[in-house]
Computed example of a mutant assay.
Amino acid sequence: MFSYRHAFHAGNHADVLKHTTLIALMKYLTQKDTALTVIDTHAGAGLYRLDGDYTETSGEAQEGVFRLLSEPKAPPAQAPRAQAAPKTVAKPAAAKPASTAAAGWAPALQDYIGILRGLNPQFAETGDVAHLKIYPGSPFIEQQFLSGRDKLKLFELHPTDYKSLSGNIEQLGVGRQVAVAREDGFEALKTFLPPPARRAMVLCDPSYEMKSDYGRVATCMADAVKRFATGTYVVWYPIIPRPEAHDLPRKLKTLAVKASRSWLNATLTVKSSKLTTDTSGEVIRPGLPASGMFVINPPHTLKAELQAALPQMVALLGQDRNAGFTLEHGG
């Protein structure tokens, strides 16, 4: 149960999608004067070293955030529009001088890169990805947008990650604004809905290490919407050759439609999911080829932000001709 460590995956292509979306959500939701309660059901360690043993062992950040930012690549000057249902493939952009890159980023990706710069002063000063050492998990992204009236509830069961998370949050000196608990986030969520100020955002992104996680996510979201229909509910999910993985977004869409709530589903594919073999005939597993973000009650601004950002993610993170994205919405 505790074999999964996000440190192996920090900064991968799924994190780029997840955190770009999360930043756009937090930026919008914290603009209002009314207090916001943010609940992170599977918080992880909060901060990760991109030059640490875990990340360097997996190499996933190299195909994620480092690939996104490495020279001489730059975002497309004009991003193509997404299609609602079928997969839309954005072709890689031609290389551009690094000096022109900043002007071409979609606003949501500019905000994502801004968060990275804030945690990595040398990277901010030089633009050299060799100085990109610290990567924020969702708790640190969420906390950076909070005002004094807002609250952040973090749940993490893994004993080592819970200890790291507690220490990382303590260093922020934010007092009672951020609460960390070693509890099952699926169950703990029930005690906080509805929130006192009637405004909440919930991020649910378990490891999906166990097949039962898929069913628990769907059940958890159904219960949450029943308890507090107007909250913003955000689910990250992997797209892998497993029936449960493909059923989850369909279940979430059905849930939203039945509850008469608006919804948005964004996916990012970077490579084929097919197994291949090397010269000796040994099977090579592709790793995670794609992931998605499903949002119930999304802000009205989110669709346009992702329409601009997703083609750039495909152009810079895509590894083969199967790379593409989808962006669906309804309600």
Rank of each mutant, 00 (worst) to 15 (best):
S138K: 08
L193W: 10
R198W: 12
R117M: 04
N120K: 05
V174K: 02
Y214N: 03
D128K: 00
Y112A: 06
Q143T: 08
D161T: 04
P196E: 15
G127V: 03
E187P: 03
Q177Y: 10
P139T: 11
Y162W: 07
G127Q: 04
A218R: 13
L109G: 10
L172K: 06
R216T: 08
A197L: 05
A179L: 13
K151I: 09
S212A: 15
G148V: 07
F145H: 12
I169E: 06
P194R: 04
P136C: 00
Y162H: 13
I141G: 05
E156Y: 09
N120D: 08
V129Q: 12
G173H: 01
A181R: 05
A124D: 14
D161I: 00
F140Y: 12
N168A: 06
H158F: 02
G175A: 02
R182C: 07
R176E: 14
R182S: 09
R199I: 10
G215F: 03
L193P: 10
E187K: 05
Y162L: 00
A218S: 14
L154W: 10
R198T: 00
V178K: 03
R199T: 03
Y208E: 08
P206R: 00
Q143N: 14
E183G: 10
T191Y: 09
F186S: 01
A218Q: 13
I134S: 10
L152C: 05
Y135E: 11
E142F: 15
R117P: 00
D161V: 00
L152M: 00
F155M: 03
S207A: 05
P121N: 08
R176I: 01
E170L: 01
V217F: 08
F192T: 04
I169Y: 03
F192W: 15
I115E: 15
A197T: 12
P136T: 02
E125H: 13
Q143M: 14
G175C: 07
A108D: 14
A181Y: 06
K133Y: 10
V202E: 10
L193S: 02
E187S: 00
H158Q: 07
